[in-house]
Computed example of a mutant assay.
Amino acid sequence: MKLGAFSISLSVKDIKKSKSFYENLGFHAFGGDITQKWLIMKNESTIIGLFQGMFEENMLTFNPGWNQNAENIDSFTDIRELQKQLKANGVEMLSEANETSEGPASFTIKDPDGNTILVDQHR
Rank of each mutant, 00 (worst) to 15 (best):
K2G: 07
K16V: 12
E96Q: 09
L50K: 04
G26V: 09
L3K: 07
F6T: 09
D120T: 00
D120Y: 11
N63F: 15
G90Q: 13
I117E: 09
N115P: 07
I40K: 03
Q83N: 03
F51E: 12
M59T: 13
T46K: 02
A105Q: 06
E99K: 01
L82T: 09
N43P: 02
G114T: 09
R80D: 00
A97Y: 00
N89F: 12
Q83L: 05
Q36T: 12
G26D: 03
T77M: 11
G53A: 10
F21G: 06
N98M: 01
F6G: 03
D33S: 09
S18H: 05
L3Q: 09
L10S: 03
P64L: 04
I109Q: 07
S18I: 04
A88N: 11
F30M: 03
K17M: 10
P64K: 12
E71L: 14
M54S: 08
I34Y: 04
K13F: 09
E96R: 03
D120K: 01
K84W: 01
A105Y: 01
K84M: 03
L82S: 06
A5V: 03
E92K: 15
L39R: 00
T61Y: 02
E102V: 01
L86Y: 14
N69A: 10
S106Y: 02
N58T: 14
I109T: 09
L60N: 06
D111I: 14
M41G: 02
E96Y: 01
F55H: 15
F51Q: 11
D14K: 12
L60S: 06
D113M: 09
D111Y: 14
I15P: 11
L82C: 04
V91T: 11
D33V: 08
E81N: 06
R123Y: 02
I8F: 01
R123G: 00
K110W: 10
G49S: 14
E23A: 12
N58I: 13
E56S: 15
T108Y: 04
Q36C: 12
N115S: 08
F30R: 01
